[in-house]
């Protein structure tokens, strides 16, 4: 899963972080690269659509009261270097400590978690990219644009692949990844005394950690 872009939208729809990762190279460049204003519009549009999406819940679902399981399984070592590399690089403490900020162990979390994004927009599939949205409890949105394209042709024998639906697996991977970015955010943005809430993120440490995670993923 190659991540093309990462956006963070605050709870009032303002874009507070945006990076393009064009390390893949093989992709054709955009005809007209978007300027920062376009991205601001894009972020607030997504924010609005997100709210609309929750208004559109079909009547059948409202009536049937079916319980949907929002648990996202934990996918190990996504974006964090594997345990082996960890052991060799550690000459003692130091390089190991603070590796994951205030998170103990070799990964940010080890348990499955419940998605807070229950009725809002979660995924947008297009011919060229897939967009994933992870929403936190406080309404902050982490948006990843991946170059992976979801298959549009149905499997001839859908029963065979019922449990490994590529679409839902992709959502789980993306949720795991974005949750880790959220963990980084909680460390390197929220614990920065010079950061003012809801404002654009300028921390170079956050930048560095996000880049490292993207490098590990692709």
């Amino acid at each position: 899963m190659a991540i093309q872009s990462l956006l963070i939208v605050n709870k009032s729809g303002g874009l507070i972080y945006h990076r393009n990762f064009t390390g893949t190279g093989s992709h054709e460049q955009q005809k007209q690269p978007l300027n920062s204003n376009d991205y601001l519009i894009l972020a607030s549009t997504l924010h609005g659509v997100f709210a609309i999406a929750s208004q559109l819940t079909p009547k059948a679902l409202q009536l049937s009261q079916t319980q949907i399981d929002y648990t996202i399984p934990y996918i190990p070592n996504l974006g964090t270097s594997s345990g082996a590399a960890n052991a060799t690089s550690s000459g003692g403490r130091g390089s190991n400590i603070g590796k994951l900020g205030s998170f103990k162990g070799d990964d940010f979390f080890k348990d499955s978690f419940t998605s807070w994004n229950k009725s809002g927009l979660r995924q947008l599939c297009t011919d060229q990219f897939t967009m994933f949205i992870y929403q936190t409890m406080s309404g902050l949105k982490f948006i990843a644009i991946s170059s992976t394209v979801m298959p549009q042709r149905q499997d001839l024998n859908p029963d065979r692949n019922k449990n490994i639906n590529p679409n839902n697996l992709a959502i789980q991977v993306a949720d795991n990844f974005l949750r880790k970015v959220y963990c980084l955010y909680s460390d390197y943005v929220m614990k920065d005394p010079f950061y003012s809430m809801e404002m654009p993120i300028k921390s170079d440490l956050f930048e560095k950690k996000v880049n490292a995670m993207i490098d590990n993923i692709s």
Binding site: G101, Y188, D192, P193, L205
Partner: peptide, 12 residues
């Protein structure tokens, strides 16, 4: 090598 208290404060 890695100050604990200021580890989350960006250098920029």
């Amino acid at each position: 090598n890695s100050p604990v208290l200021t580890q989350f404060i960006p250098n920029n």
